[in-house]
Amino acid sequence: MKINCLVLAAALVLPAGFAAADGDPVAGAKVFKQCAACHTVDGKNKVGPTLQGVVGRPVATVQGFKYSKAMTEFGADGKTWTEDLLKSYLPKPRELVKGTTMTFAGLKKEDDIENVIAYLKDPAAAK
């Protein structure tokens, strides 16, 4: 009986969606296909900068990539692409970074955002 009470107590205290908080990199690889026209995870820049190592990287700092003025200014105060910042950015990139040249409208589903972040953190986990 005590174990059941503890499980119930934990369920009441943990935030909704806690179990999926880390995302699924395999599902994230599928979501990333929407990004692949402009971005890679292999270190090569395309129309957009490589997203290899983006989680934890300072904003607008990929060597050899020419960022828009808006993105450069957005990162000028030392912002880093944390999971939380990506969660704010990915649903509406042009709303968070006004004037960015990125034309992607954004990811609408929370699961897609969690999954693509998991993939970006460890693309090899999707293989």
Rank of each mutant, 00 (worst) to 15 (best):
L90K: 01
A20E: 15
N45C: 11
K79D: 00
A20C: 07
K92G: 09
N45R: 09
A37Y: 11
K33W: 01
G23Q: 06
E83V: 03
T50Q: 05
E83Q: 11
L8C: 13
Y67L: 05
G23H: 08
D84R: 00
A10K: 08
K98C: 03
E73L: 11
Q52E: 15
Q34D: 11
A60P: 05
G28W: 04
C35S: 04
G43L: 05
V7N: 11
G28T: 03
L96V: 13
K79A: 00
G53I: 00
R94S: 11
L90D: 07
P25Y: 13
C5M: 14
D84G: 00
G48Q: 09
C38H: 06
T80L: 02
V31T: 12
T50R: 01
T80N: 03
Q63Y: 02
Q63E: 15
P49F: 12
G43A: 06
K33T: 02
F32C: 06
K69D: 15
T82H: 00
D84Q: 08
G64E: 12
V41K: 10
L6M: 14
P25L: 12
A76V: 00
K30L: 12
A29D: 13
A27P: 02
D22I: 06
E73S: 13
Q52I: 01
D42A: 06
K30V: 15
R94Q: 14
F18E: 09
P25C: 10
L12D: 12
K33E: 10
N45P: 10
V41C: 12
Q34H: 14
T50N: 07
L8H: 10
Q63H: 12
A20V: 02
G43R: 09
F18C: 15
P91N: 07
D22R: 10
H39I: 02
D24Q: 10
K30T: 15
F74W: 08
G28L: 08
D22Y: 15
L14G: 11
M71T: 09
Q34L: 15
